[in-house]
Design a protein around this nucleic acid. Structure first.
Lengths: 213, 213
DNA sequence: CGCGTCGCTAAGCGCTTGCTCAGCAACGCG
DNA sequence: CGCGTTGCTGAGCAAGCGCTTAGCGACGCG
């Protein structure tokens, strides 16, 4: 299986929850198009074309183009929230949980940079109601990360002056991976995750136990 | 002078090099509109309206809507490059230069978050030639920052495993300020600059000389 | 005054956009 | 077989887009 085929398969699995098949193909096509050109520069004809359909077929599965973006945003942000939740609720020290959170969160933004770019940078195109709903998911993700950092600061593992500010910076750092990451760059998603986990542990003043300790 | 008037004045000074007056007003209007809605969602009628003109007047000063974005991107990226250059070429230790670079660079992205958002997140709307030109400016900014970090690593001031990766992360952190910063948030641009300078010094393993040392 | 120039506007052109609608082939069910 | 349902297409509508063009009032200059 070639690299392109593998990527297509991974992208298909990402939207496994979307049925029927045509609706899933449309979501995949929309993510690609939105990530490449942006929401407003993408036409419904383009999306339908990529999914192998006529423009009219799109409207059987989605009421509007904005609904497609909303569905993508919802699924993507829920996945991001689950990743952060898994790390926050795992056992271990605050240092271990923070490293795990940043490693998996940053890695996901690299591996799924197409989806991540759409859900992080095209939010403003959502309707007011949908925007508010998605913002709620992001606030929950933020709270989980802040909880880990607060734990570490309270327990003396971390040396942090400004917990909300540091949380914001860490989240910002991970999210922005979606902007610059490309599959043909020099770094794999795993490497990005490892690098970022290391950098963030330094940011919070955690004692690093590897070669830099 | 009210806050809004002060902001308008600051925005006017930002484009002082653009003449005549009508062309400058159009640039200001375009920056606001692009930052709010994005390039593709902004109409030439909207830009002209904000500048107090008819749609046709825009085309006396700029050949296309894209040229407006190109001018804004050029001026903005040159300013960003100058900020990074001033810090890189100043005297002092690598630690001092890095702190200065991050403080001023992050602060500019907060203070001019409207402009910064446009030049950092609407680049893909540029023509191929213009995009290449702007990318050149960004590479120069990147090289300046990498130089500082490399100096600190070589001289033993910093403990950095991956200089290009760390440079990328620092730049990404500062740039992303433009995405989340709002004037009505809890932090001033100065505070963002100070916080980010502290966080970045920790990332590179610099010895911190203040209360955290 | 006469006349060209400059900055601008009202009107609108050609095109693309998001979206709709009538109709059609395939299918399941009695 | 008959018939409704499902998933889709070809054609196209109203609206809005970037951009153009003809022309107008204010001004400087001789």
């Amino acid at each position: 299986m070639g690299a392109a085929a593998e990527r297509a398969k991974a992208e298909n699995e990402e939207w496994a929850g979307v049925t029927p098949d045509a609706a899933r193909r449309l979501v995949g096509a929309a993510v690609q198009a939105f990530a490449e050109r942006g929401y407003h520069a993408t036409t419904t004809r383009d999306i339908a074309g990529r999914a192998g359909m006529s423009p009219a077929a799109l409207y059987i599965h989605y009421k509007t183009k904005e609904e497609l973006l909303y569905r993508i945003s919802g699924i993507g942000h829920e996945k991001a929230l689950r990743i952060m939740g898994a790390a926050a609720e795992a056992g271990g020290t605050a240092t271990e949980r923070l490293a795990d959170a940043v490693r998996t969160f940053a890695r996901w933004h690299a591996e799924h940079h197409t989806t991540a770019r759409v859900i992080q940078y095209e939010l403003q195109a959502l309707s007011t109601e949908h925007y508010a709903e998605i913002t709620g998911l992001r606030r929950r993700t933020d709270r989980l990360l802040r909880g880990i950092i607060q734990d570490g600061a309270d327990g003396g593992e971390f040396l942090v002056d400004d917990v909300p500010g540091t949380t914001l910076a860490v989240l910002s750092l991970c999210v922005d991976v979606a902007r610059w990451f490309t599959a043909d760059g020099p770094r794999t998603p795993d490497e990005v995750g490892a690098l970022y986990a290391d950098l963030v542990l330094r940011m919070v003043g955690a004692r690093v136990t590897d070669k830099n300790g």
